[in-house]
């Protein structure tokens, strides 16, 4: 069977699935809106977590957080289920498709056969929508893909029960109750305050202070770890900032798009101004990526130490700008 489901491509999977499921149920919510109301913007350095043999740095809230906060703030109730047993997971999925209910699934990326090989890493917090089934083939709407795609039952089971950090355990979710009317104003204000609080948190690993900490680390890496490792780490930072899903500039552009939309919703001119300021900050992150890539471009180990200082200084400048920005944003709502 095939459910009449409209696929919209998005930059990021989690926003995309929420936005697509909302649209399916007759509520038009854009991707930036989901991202903003879910307080998706963040900067966090997680020193004890290594991803691809480099320290983890994230530009967004924990997987699932955007989703939870959005649902809570706009008053949509989601049903979520996890499974121990793959058979039970499949049965529940089929039952939902049977009654024309497209569901969101959390999956691991490594076995997603329709992704280019180079992008298949062990990352378990990817999201997609299943909107139908033909014999043994499931119809998939993966929000980061341009068009819809398919997975066999076996492939789907594999990605639903991927192992490692954030193991999905067959995680399946779908909206069950909606408010009569979508009231976004309060949710927007609450979400913006939350993001400001996160970004200005007095913790060395989070938000603006986290950016400064990482800048300090970049200065130390070449001496402490050798330039080869330092280059590898720097490459990983840029990948986490720009790889599939961030919409460019480590989510800063999506956030600027959200602020622009929010300014119209709230009739707040100040937010429009801040949106263009956020765009400029996004441009600075892009510049940082360009300069960092000049360092790791040739994988040679002979690199002048000064260049690391330069990109670190650039990061510190971005941190200062963001600090000023979020202080202003806090006052604007």
């Amino acid at each position: 069977m095939e459910i009449d489901f409209t696929h919209h491509q998005s930059a990021h999977c989690e926003n995309g699935v929420v936005s697509n499921l909302m649209k399916h149920n007759g509520f038009t919510v854009s991707e930036p809106m989901v991202f903003g109301i879910g307080s998706g913007l963040l900067y966090c350095y997680i020193p004890f977590l290594m991803v691809n043999h480099a320290p983890a740095i994230t530009y967004r809230a924990m997987p699932g957080a955007i989703f939870n906060r959005f649902a809570k703030r706009v008053g949509v109730k989601f049903k979520r289920e996890k499974f121990k047993n793959a058979k039970a997971a499949k049965a529940r999925l089929d039952a939902n498709l049977e009654r024309d209910n497209p569901v969101g699934l959390q999956v691991g990326v490594y076995n997603l056969t329709y992704f280019p090989d180079e992008y298949r890493f062990h990352f378990n917090a990817h999201n997609l929508v299943v909107y139908g089934k033909q014999d043994d083939i499931y119809l998939i709407s993966d929000p980061v893909m341009e068009t819809v795609t398919t997975l066999t039952a076996k492939e789907l089971e594999k990605v639903r029960f991927a192992k490692g950090a954030f193991a999905p355990k067959g995680h399946m979710y779908y909206p069950i109750a909606f408010p009569k009317e979508l009231k976004l104003e309060k949710a927007i204000v609450k979400a913006i305050k939350h993001t400001c609080r996160d970004m200005l948190a007095p913790v060395p690993y989070v938000g603006v202070k986290g950016v400064k900490t990482v800048a300090g680390l970049i200065r130390k890496w070449p001496e402490k770890k050798g330039t080869k490792t330092a280059n590898h780490y720097l490459g990983q930072i840029v990948r986490m900032q720009e790889e599939i899903g961030t919409g460019g500039g480590g989510f800063r552009y999506i956030y600027a798009a959200f602020l622009q939309e929010a300014s119209k919703q709230l009739g707040n001119e100040k937010l429009l101004e801040l949106s263009s300021e956020m765009t400029q900050i996004g441009d600075l992150w892009r510049d940082f990526a360009v300069d960092a890539s000049r360092i790791y471009r040739n994988r040679s180990t002979k690199v002048v130490i000064d260049v690391y200082d330069d990109v670190a200084t650039q990061l510190e400048m971005i941190a200062n700008k963001e600090e000023a920005f979020f202080k202003k944003l806090k006052k604007a709502v």
Binding site: N52, H53, E118, Y119, N231, H232, G235, Q236, V238, R239, E242, E243, A289, V290, A292, S293, Y296, R297, R299
Partner: peptide, 15 residues
């Protein structure tokens, strides 16, 4: 695509 991240990705693959 964008060169800075393509380079980062192909470096990671090389690694």
């Amino acid at each position: 695509g964008w060169d800075p991240k393509t380079i980062a990705l192909s470096n990671a693959i090389e690694e």
